[in-house]
């Protein structure tokens, strides 16, 4: 019970203090939103929307999680308030779960901003929402864990930002969003297969457009492996770097 109170309050504090603060709402939500509108204006008719939607959802998740988590944790560590969490009688895993959950929820919420607007233009009734939601959750989880990994490695807030961009932008271009993976230059293709986002986007593509590289079960499986691997790496580094 005590752990649940602590867990819930850490989560709530992050949501109130970071995720719902105006600059972050604009970065996390207005940004994907304006991107959506821009694409809608650019593409003639409504035919392009279902092709664009998976990409927009993935971008929204990525922008809502990775750097948010990396930056807020680095910020708290720098300002020493993170010590307060390490001093609390809750396990590091509980703490990490609470921190990640905030980013995951925010990422999921962001993913559905473009969907909400697209619904005004196209018919989304044929979509398998349960698989779509699973894909979004897994994308959010892996992106958040990546953010945590960055947070564990960065000392300064600007470092966290740089690292985030370092991962996030290549990921955008290599995950098959704008250029399908099979059209990428052969040297880049292996890299794209090492990115969790590639598999999340593949599921979303298959849901909205029917085009895919791998079957959904395989994609989900790979993303789970990524999540487990990233979690393990974070945990190992946290013990080494947070408690000096």
């Amino acid at each position: 019970m005590k752990t649940i109170i602590a867990f819930w309050n850490i989560l709530r504090k992050d949501i109130e203090n970071y995720y719902l603060k105006p600059p972050n709402i604009s970065w996390g939500m207005i940004f994907p939103l304006s991107w959506t509108l821009m694409q809608l204006i650019r593409s003639p008719g409504n035919t392009g929307i279902s092709e664009l939607l998976p990409g927009l959802m993935a971008v929204s998740v990525l922008f809502g999680t990775t750097s948010m988590l990396a930056v807020t944790i680095t910020f708290e560590r720098k300002g020493r308030s993170f010590d307060r969490l390490l001093l609390a009688p809750i396990s590091i895993n509980t703490l990490v779960f609470a921190k990640i959950l905030g980013a995951v929820l925010f990422g999921i919420l962001n993913a559905f901003v473009p969907v909400f607007f697209a619904a005004f233009f196209i018919d989304l009734s044929g979509i398998d929402w349960s698989i779509t939601v699973i894909a979004v959750i897994l994308t959010a989880v892996t992106s958040a864990l990546l953010g945590l990994l960055i947070a564990v490695s960065a000392r300064e807030v600007f470092e966290a930002q740089t690292f985030s961009n370092f991962f996030r932008f290549p990921m955008l271009f290599l995950c098959g969003l704008f250029i399908p993976v099979d059209k990428l230059p052969a040297v880049l293709r292996p890299i794209s297969f090492c990115l969790p986002l590639t598999y999340g986007t593949d599921i979303l593509n298959s849901m909205f457009t029917g085009n895919f590289m791998f079957n959904t079960i395989f994609n989900i499986f790979v993303m789970l492996i990524f999540a487990a691997l990233l979690f393990y790496l974070c945990q190992r580094n946290i013990k080494r770097k947070w408690i000096l």
């Binding site: 819930w8 309050n9 850490i10 504090k13 203090n17 308030s81 307060r84």
Partner: peptide
């Protein structure tokens, strides 16, 4: 090591919540 953006009362309540 408190939260700069939060008010004094909020800071204390948050710290208390960490102890359940």
């Amino acid at each position: 090591n408190l939260y700069y953006e939060m008010d004094g009362f909020g800071n204390l309540c948050f710290c208390a919540s960490l102890y359940g």
